[in-house]
Computed example of a mutant assay.
Amino acid sequence: MDTFQVIILALIQGLTEFLPISSSAHLILPAQLLGWQDQGLSFDVAVNTGSLLAVVMYFRRELYSMLTAWSGSIISRKQNEESRLAWWIILATIPAVIVGFTAKDFIATHFRNIEVIAATTIIFGLLLWWADRMSREGLSEFQVGWKKALFIGLAQAVALIPGTSRSGITMTAGLMLGLTREAAARFSFLMSVPVSLGAAILVTKDLISSGQAIDYQALGLGIVVSFLSAYLCIHYFLKIISKMGMTPFVIYRLLLGAVLCGFIFL
C-alpha cells in the first residue's frame, strides 16, 4: 500500500470502530470505489492495535480502578461497583468468544458480502433509532447487573455478522435495557477492550503462521493514525450523543445502506 491508502484505511478503522456505523461496511467502500486490494493481515493487526490502545488510554483510570477492584474481589471476596462492572464486562465478552470460535468460518463464508452488509447496515440502524427513541430510564453502567450484561454480550455476538456494528448493536441493547446514552456508550467501549485484545492475538497468530511479508513503516503509520482517530472519535462521540442522540448516526447508516444497495443493483 502507498501512504495515501495507509492513512485512509487507518482513519476508517479508527473512526468506525467506535461509532455505531459499521466498520466492515466502510472497509469495503475503498475496494468498490477505488479498486484497492485487500490490505492484508499485518495491516489488520496494526490498525486494530491502534484503536485498542486508544480506548485503553482514554479509559485508563476506569480500567485501572476496575482491574484493581476485580483482582481484590478475588482475594477478599468483597465487591464494589468497579469490581462488579469488571465481572459484567467479562460475562458480556463470553458470548462473542463462543460464537467467534464456533461460527467464524461459517460467517466469513456466507455473510461477508455486500448484500448482507447493506441489509444489516439499514436494519440495525433503524433498530438503533427505535431504541434511542423508546429509552426512558436513566441507568449508569454501574447499574447494569449480570442479566443486562449477558443480554448486551449476546448482542455483541450478533455483531460478528458484517455490517451490524459492534458498537452500534451493543449501544442499542444498552438503550433497550434503560441505560443512558452515555452509559450505553461507555459500557460498549469498555466491552471492546477484551474483544479487541482477543482479536489482535488471534490475527497476530494467523499473521505469524502465514509468513506474510511485513512493511513496518506502513504498519507504524497505520497504528499512529488509527490511535489518534479512534481517541478523538471516542472523545467527541460522547459529547455529541449527550446533545443530539443517535439520530445523526442513524441517518448516516441509512444513507450508507442506500449507497451499498446502489452497488448491488447498478
Rank of each mutant, 00 (worst) to 15 (best):
M57I: 15
L67F: 11
L67S: 14
A46S: 06
Q39N: 12
D44R: 01
G40W: 01
G40T: 05
W87Q: 10
S24N: 06
L27W: 04
R77E: 08
N80R: 07
I90C: 08
L15Y: 03
M57G: 12
Q37M: 12
V55T: 07
L67W: 15
R60I: 10
S83A: 08
N80Q: 08
P30M: 01
N80D: 10
S65N: 13
T68H: 12
L41R: 10
W87G: 06
E81R: 15
G14I: 02
S23A: 09
M66D: 02
W36I: 07
L52W: 01
D44H: 04
W36A: 02
E82G: 05
Y64K: 15
S83T: 04
R84L: 14
G14W: 01
E62C: 11
S71M: 15
V45E: 02
K78E: 14
I74K: 15
A31P: 08
W70T: 14
I89R: 00
L15K: 07
D38W: 05
F43T: 01
Q37L: 11
T68L: 14
Q79H: 14
L52K: 00
S23H: 07
T16Y: 01
E62I: 09
S73C: 02
S22H: 00
H26C: 05
S65V: 15
I21L: 06
E17S: 00
G72M: 09
S23T: 06
G14Y: 03
S71E: 11
E62L: 12
G72A: 11
R84Q: 13
E81M: 15
L41Y: 05
L52M: 00
L19M: 04
Y64P: 08
S83W: 01
L27E: 05
L15A: 14
S76I: 11
N48D: 08
L19Y: 00
S24C: 09
T16G: 02
I74P: 11
A46M: 04
L67M: 12
P20T: 04
V56L: 09
S23L: 08
P20N: 07
M57V: 11
V47L: 08
E81H: 12
Q79F: 15
L27Y: 03
Y64I: 14
L33W: 13
Y64W: 15
R77C: 06
V47C: 05
E82N: 15
I90S: 05
V56P: 03
I75T: 10
E17M: 02
Q37C: 07
G72P: 09
F43K: 04
S22P: 00
Y64D: 13
S73Q: 03
S83V: 03
Q32K: 14
L33Y: 09
N48I: 07
V56K: 00
Q39S: 11
S22L: 01
L29K: 08
R60V: 09
L27V: 08
L91E: 04
S22I: 01
D38A: 10
I28C: 03
L33I: 13
S83R: 01
G50P: 01
R77F: 13
L15C: 08
